[in-house]
Design a protein around this nucleic acid. Sequence first.
DNA 1: GCCGGTCTGTCGCCTGCGCGACAATCGGCG
DNA 2: CGCCGATTGTCGCGCAGGCGACAGACCGGC
Lengths: 241, 241
Amino acid sequence: MPHRLVRNEWFAELPPEVVEQLAQRAHRRKLADGQMLYARGDAPQGLYGVVSGRVELRASAPDGREIVATVHEPGNWFGEVSLFDGAQRVHDAFADGATELLVIPTADFHRWLATHPELYPHFTRMLCRKLRLALGVVEALVFLPLSARVAARLLTLAEAYGRPSADGLLIDRHLPQDLLARMVAAGRQAVSRELKALEAAGAIRVAYGKVVVTDMDRLREQAGDALRLAALQDIPAAPQR
Amino acid sequence: MPHRLVRNEWFAELPPEVVEQLAQRAHRRKLADGQMLYARGDAPQGLYGVVSGRVELRASAPDGREIVATVHEPGNWFGEVSLFDGAQRVHDAFADGATELLVIPTADFHRWLATHPELYPHFTRMLCRKLRLALGVVEALVFLPLSARVAARLLTLAEAYGRPSADGLLIDRHLPQDLLARMVAAGRQAVSRELKALEAAGAIRVAYGKVVVTDMDRLREQAGDALRLAALQDIPAAPQR
DNA sequence: GCCGGTCTGTCGCCTGCGCGACAATCGGCG
DNA sequence: CGCCGATTGTCGCGCAGGCGACAGACCGGC
């Protein structure tokens, strides 16, 4: 198992030899750009880890509108809800670029976990974290105007992909405005307008398919109330007793 | 422990004597109407079970707007997220009517659970269920018009509180339109309008502080796409009377 | 039966944002 | 180095729904 896959929150804290047992159950799977991994309603196959490429989890309405719930990068694991409750997939999953995955079949995962019950608290914490994120999204949608959602999103993107560059922190990832729009559940044109506003405020600079954050503090100002929600998304490793 | 509290999904499937061990750790707490149990950001005290009365979990914006995330009825347990991850409360909790709770302190719960690791899968499933609910709410907010959200909500309320009456299924619970509005994250007047529309469509009849579903199928039609999400909707365990 | 608080119906204004349309750029690939 | 698909800027229409303002209906308690 590539060690980057065990360096993330899912497995990083666990003893290496324990993770190794699990890794032996995994097999690999390759996806072409845009290929569907699963669709909402599918029966779960297992837990997925991204080795290379990317996987977008999306929700879509019958009328064609869609939102991007998450984008999983190399090192991320996903598919845990169906893993733990065995029920249908909630989202549609598509490869973004040629992608290689590690797949741990549901049954193997559970056999492994059964022999390591001490790991359960760890996984319940993972689930709680997802739950808090989802609740934060609900609040953001209900309470925050688009401007704040965009600003907040850029902040988290900057943290995840930020790389210092000439005139600020470059979000080093292909980020067309309509992807950003689907991430904040909005239309492309509206996002374009908000980006212009942020640029006028001196918080960012927009380039072709890219965004550079020139002033994090100013961006934080624009996010406003969203920060209160951001705090919820940042879960301290609280002792579970 | 009143047996109504162990009849719900949280503990119903578990061996009675195991639940009994836990029950002995619980203590009681009374709240007056409208009293706050906890606020967002508070450190968690434990897991709560509603013995009598009701508890509303709400989220509110600084500007005063607020939504009702859930209403817990007698027999329901809540507060599990903070229980499992130890972090701050996400919502504000208020008693609706004079309320009596059973409180299981966090530490006691975990001591108990540690001696029954076989129960972990059960609790991860509970968390997954909440997560699915939250994801369903996100989709409903993004994709569905208010009319569908109202119709869908009435359907779940009818399932939970429905009682046959002269001209249909009475939702037997104090349900002013502005409560309904806060449940679907909308304004009171808009909900009023939608209710009128549903009435005109012959799906419901609105009374003072009450709603009677006269035609479930017609109501389902109005909910439309929401039914796809319906499986994800929150159904408060029916109040046990 | 009366009163005050709670609910509902309705009208109207206003704003945020979806969405179509199109022109202007950009940039990778042949 | 030029073409074409991808991306962006912008204008404008349309509308769902937020919100204030009342007026009227209801109801439980006294």
